[in-house]
């Protein structure tokens, strides 16, 4: 990890859409009086979604005002959690897992594919559509190596498959999330090795 700073180019202002505002009020109402600040993470998350995957500075102030917090308190939360992106990300935001299991299974090849077809880490691609960054374990080690693109996991990857996914996304084609191998979810790669009987057939 390295020091994360706010983006030098910031929008003038930020405001929730009416739907998001309604949703935010619902979140705030979950907490007892005087504890509204507890809703900071869901609200910042929603703000990030609305702003296109990153959290502009006016949004931090907007959420702080909404929750009656000092700006610096909201800033502390936004800079503490790496899931809040402080600089703009691409429409397709690729998070490459680089932690040990994925790394052992070839995460470096995936990073190379990203570098080659998207560009340097944490920068927008030339067409502005994509960006990527390395993250810590995303908890799908059994299907390593894997990446997360926006809200979906793409698993059982290698360099070539990653390349295909990038190209397909760039061309606006659909890509099926999940394992990019023959297996279903995290079943053994060569077919089932246990629990092969139909449940209850033994009569026990």
């Amino acid at each position: 990890m390295s020091v994360r700073r706010l983006d030098p180019n910031q929008p003038e202002s930020f405001e929730f859409t009416p739907e998001n505002l309604e949703w935010a009020k619902g979140q705030i109402a979950k907490y007892p009086d005087g504890r509204q600040a507890s809703a900071i993470i869901p609200l910042l998350w929603q703000a990030q979604k609305q702003a296109g995957g990153w959290l502009p500075e006016p949004a931090i102030r907007y959420v702080a005002d909404m929750l009656g917090m000092a700006y610096i308190r909201a800033m502390e939360v936004a800079t503490f959690y790496t899931m809040f992106n402080l600089t703009p990300v691409g429409e397709h935001f690729v998070q490459v897992c680089g932690t040990t299991p994925c790394w052992l299974r070839g995460a470096d090849d995936i990073k190379d594919a990203c570098k080659k077809h998207i560009g340097p880490e944490k920068t927008l691609s030339a067409d502005g559509k994509m960006s990527w960054m390395e993250v810590e374990c995303l908890g799908a080690c059994v299907n390593a190596p894997m990446v997360q693109i926006n809200d979906d996991y793409y698993e059982d990857l290698d360099g070539a498959k990653m390349e295909e996914i990038i190209k397909a996304l760039r061309d606006g084609k659909d890509v099926t999330p999940g394992p990019q191998s023959s297996r279903k979810t995290s079943e053994p790669i060569g077919g089932l090795t246990s629990l092969t009987e139909v449940p209850g057939a033994g009569g026990k």
Partner: peptide, 16 residues
């Protein structure tokens, strides 16, 4: 007005 932004080794004390 003073807070600690970032985390771990990158934590910094600053004002907003």
């Amino acid at each position: 007005e003073i807070g600690a932004i970032g985390r771990g080794e990158d934590m910094e004390i600053t004002t907003y």
